[in-house]
Every structure is written in structure tokens, then in C-alpha cells.
Amino acid sequence: MQVWPETDGALRIGRCEAVTDTGRIGRIMQPSGNVELTTRIGPGFGTTPTFEAMVFPAGEAHIKVVNENWGKGPLTEVCRLYGADGNDLFTVAMWADACRRRADARRSEAPDSKPNRMVLLLPYLPGARADHAEFVPFGAGVYADFVNSLGVDQVICFDPHSPVMPGLLNEATVIDSTRLFRRHIVGRADQDSRPQRYSGIIAPDKGATERARKVADACHLPMYQALKHRNPETGRLSEFTCEPLPDTGRFLVVDDICDGGGTFMGLAQATGLPKERLGLYVSHGVFSGNAEQLVDHYAEVWTTDSLQPNPAATSQLLKPHVIPLATTLNGYIR
């Protein structure tokens, strides 16, 4: 749709450009870069992307068509989201709507053409930590409703906080961290030629036990349980404990999310080990607040690129090893 103003000097919006009456092209804001749009022929052969994200000067997300890919065969439109920013989620919604409308138009022109597919790569599930129905608001449910409203054919997520939000999603594919973890960080005792880099896996609390046990089993390593205790009157964390650890060896703490890092710092102190004997892996590194102080407790910190790390937390001291997820996520597109 084009809107032509009746007054001189106003902006004219048409086909993704802001044009003044003097013919000058107005400034089109660049999107955040956290939304990546690609196109495949079938499930696996890449081609030029159909769409490109943009932002109008007033702040509205928009999608424009940059390549006409009709005639190349059945297409799979893929959207990868880094993080969970609300503006980026609106860009994803615009992409989904553009995909649907173009597909509908194509079917009206060529009724026998095969339908296109839409795949959303959403490694970090927004709101997944608000996974109890008594939460107000019920964040996992709110975000799940939003994702379901997009009408995509597949949602691929990585190491979600709990099974709750994936269970609320339509067409969810869940990837656990075991294989990526073993390959990039620890290694596997019965196959790798070099010695394993860690002697054991530590679960920082009960919620992380199943995740840590899967990793430990895959790496043929023992798992050690740590616990965090809360003051029953205030609900605040009061202390951390960890079962006895061997006198030698290095140990890796495994969890899904690190926000401010307080739990992991408290756990490190509870182990009584020097930082040289401790490492930390989290699938989703928010690294907010005092997360920089993790370097005082861990020799190395590992995460993935599911989120764009907080520059304030990573620019000075904390420089985590970041494992790219692209190959892993793309491998699950069906």
C-alpha cells in the first residue's frame, strides 16, 4: 500500500522506502541483526533469501521481498532468532505473515504447486523460566501462544529450561545439549584420542540434575550433586552445598541459563575448589548484572550463541567460549 500525503514536506511511504516530495530517500533504520532470514529449496539446499528485514523510521518492523524464488521448487523459509527481544519477535511475526500471504498468492496462480514450509529456529525459548501455572503472568504460556499464532510448520529449540513450554508449542522440535557439549567441551572417553578435559560433571541444583546426568552419561563421567537452600521465611537463597569431590581433577558445572551468575558463584565457593579446577557451561548465556565476577570462580565459561551476549558483561573480564548453533539447528530442519 502507498500513502501519498497532501501536504508538502511529508514522507511518502511506498515499497519500503520513505521518499520526500523533493525526491530524497528518507532514512530506513537497520534491524537489530538478531533476526536471520534464509531460504532453502526443499529441506536442505540453500538459495538466495526471499526476504529481508527492515525497520521504518517510526520503529515499525517490516519485511521486504528481495529475491523471487518461485520456480526453484518447494521452498522452506527459515527464520533464526537470537535472543528474545520484543522488537525482534515482531519482526518474526511480520516474516511469518509475509510467508503466508506470498504462499496464498502463489497457490491462487498455480493451484498444483507444492506448499512452502516455514521453520522458526528459536534456540532460546522466551518466558520458559516462568513455567508454573500459578505465575502471574504465566510467561511460558503467553510466549507459547504468540509463537503458535505464527502458524509455522516447525519450531526448533535448544536445551529448554523445562518441558513445560515445549509442551505448549505446536510442532516443537527439542534438541538437548548432550552431543554438542561432548563434542566441543569434554570429549568422549571411549572414542576420543585425547584425554578428557574434565573429571566430573556438577549439577548446581535439583532442577539441573537430569540435564547434568545426561551429559555425564554421554561423556562417561561421574555426576556430583549440588544444592541451593532458601530461607523458608524470606524465600531468599541462604547457602549452597555440594557433595564431596575428589582431591584431584577438574569439574564442570552444567546448567541451561546463566543470568546474573549468583547461583554459580555461590556454588563455586561451596565446593572449596580453586578456580583452576572449575569450569562452567550454560546453554543460554544472558550474563547480566555481576556476571563478570564469574571469572573469579571459574577458569573458563562456555555457552552458545542462542543469545547475543550482554556487552556490559562480556567487554571487560568475562569472555566466554561461544559455540555456534547454526549447524546443530539446521540439521533438525525437516
Rank of each mutant, 00 (worst) to 15 (best):
residue 319 K to S: 07
residue 333 I to H: 11
residue 313 A to C: 09
residue 78 V to H: 00
residue 136 V to G: 01
residue 172 A to V: 10
residue 290 N to M: 11
residue 35 V to C: 09
residue 260 G to R: 10
residue 56 F to E: 03
residue 238 S to Q: 14
residue 111 P to C: 05
residue 268 A to W: 05
residue 232 P to A: 10
residue 293 Q to Y: 10
residue 56 F to Q: 06
residue 214 K to R: 14
residue 52 E to S: 09
residue 276 E to M: 10
residue 6 E to M: 05
residue 288 S to W: 05
residue 24 R to K: 15
residue 134 E to A: 12
residue 108 S to E: 13
residue 75 L to Q: 03
residue 49 P to H: 09
residue 228 K to F: 01
residue 269 Q to L: 14
residue 296 D to F: 07
residue 211 R to M: 08
residue 287 F to T: 02
residue 65 V to A: 12
residue 28 I to P: 00
residue 64 K to M: 15
residue 88 D to R: 04
residue 249 G to S: 03
residue 330 N to I: 12
residue 189 A to K: 15
residue 127 G to L: 07
residue 200 G to H: 07
residue 270 A to Y: 06
residue 262 G to C: 13
residue 290 N to W: 09
residue 90 F to E: 05
residue 236 R to H: 13
residue 52 E to H: 11
residue 15 R to V: 13
residue 142 V to W: 08
residue 15 R to G: 03
residue 61 A to S: 14
residue 98 A to N: 01
residue 32 S to M: 01
residue 123 P to D: 05
residue 265 M to W: 13
residue 45 F to S: 08
residue 192 D to L: 04
residue 250 R to K: 13
residue 74 P to H: 06
residue 197 R to Y: 04
residue 154 Q to S: 02
residue 94 M to W: 09
residue 49 P to D: 02
residue 173 T to E: 05
residue 64 K to T: 11
residue 161 H to R: 07
residue 263 T to W: 03
residue 136 V to P: 00
residue 229 H to L: 06
residue 186 V to E: 03
residue 187 G to E: 09
residue 79 C to V: 12
residue 45 F to P: 00
residue 298 Y to D: 04
residue 140 A to I: 00
residue 328 T to N: 01
residue 174 V to G: 01
residue 33 G to T: 13
residue 149 S to M: 09
residue 188 R to S: 14
residue 131 D to F: 08
residue 3 V to A: 07
residue 268 A to C: 02
residue 304 T to L: 03
residue 92 V to G: 01
residue 182 R to I: 12
residue 110 A to K: 14
residue 313 A to L: 01
residue 296 D to P: 05
residue 64 K to V: 15
residue 233 E to A: 14
residue 285 G to I: 09
residue 300 E to C: 04
residue 108 S to M: 15
residue 134 E to Q: 09
residue 257 I to A: 11
residue 329 L to E: 01
residue 98 A to S: 14
residue 293 Q to T: 14
residue 302 W to D: 00
residue 333 I to K: 07
residue 251 F to A: 04
residue 62 H to Q: 11
residue 313 A to G: 15
